[in-house]
């Protein structure tokens, strides 16, 4: 099974904890958002407490853990928003 690199934009608390604005994780083909969450926590253990509540957006759209991913997607992970 060939793994492929997925780039993930991180914002706010998640970026501070991972100490990077762009995370990279390796995922198998036909990966889902759920697998991405697990891979992020594995590579960046500091995110563990925050990943369950984090929002994962794919191509600017909200997702569920079943949402499929491709390496070309624009993927972002961030805490619940607090603008306004």
């Amino acid at each position: 099974m060939t793994m492929a690199p997925y780039r993930v934009l991180l914002f706010a608390t998640l970026r501070d904890l991972a100490n990077t604005a762009t995370a990279t994780v390796e995922l198998p083909p036909a990966a889902t958002v759920g697998q991405l969450r697990a891979a992020l926590v594995q590579k960046y253990p500091a995110l563990a407490d925050y990943m369950p509540a984090a929002i994962v957006a794919v191509n600017h759209a909200f997702t569920t853990d079943d949402t499929p991913l491709t390496p070309d997607d624009e993927i972002a992970a961030f805490p619940p928003v607090s603008g306004g």
Binding site: F11, A12, T13, D16, A53, I55, A57, A61, F62, T63, T64, T67, A76, F78, P79, P80, V81, S82, G83, G84
Partner: peptide
Amino acid sequence: VPVWKKEVGPDGSAWVTGHYRPTP
């Protein structure tokens, strides 16, 4: 709308946490 704020006061700074979890 993905915007976040960090509050900075005399005792340091902290990200303000939102509560809403958007879905598809």
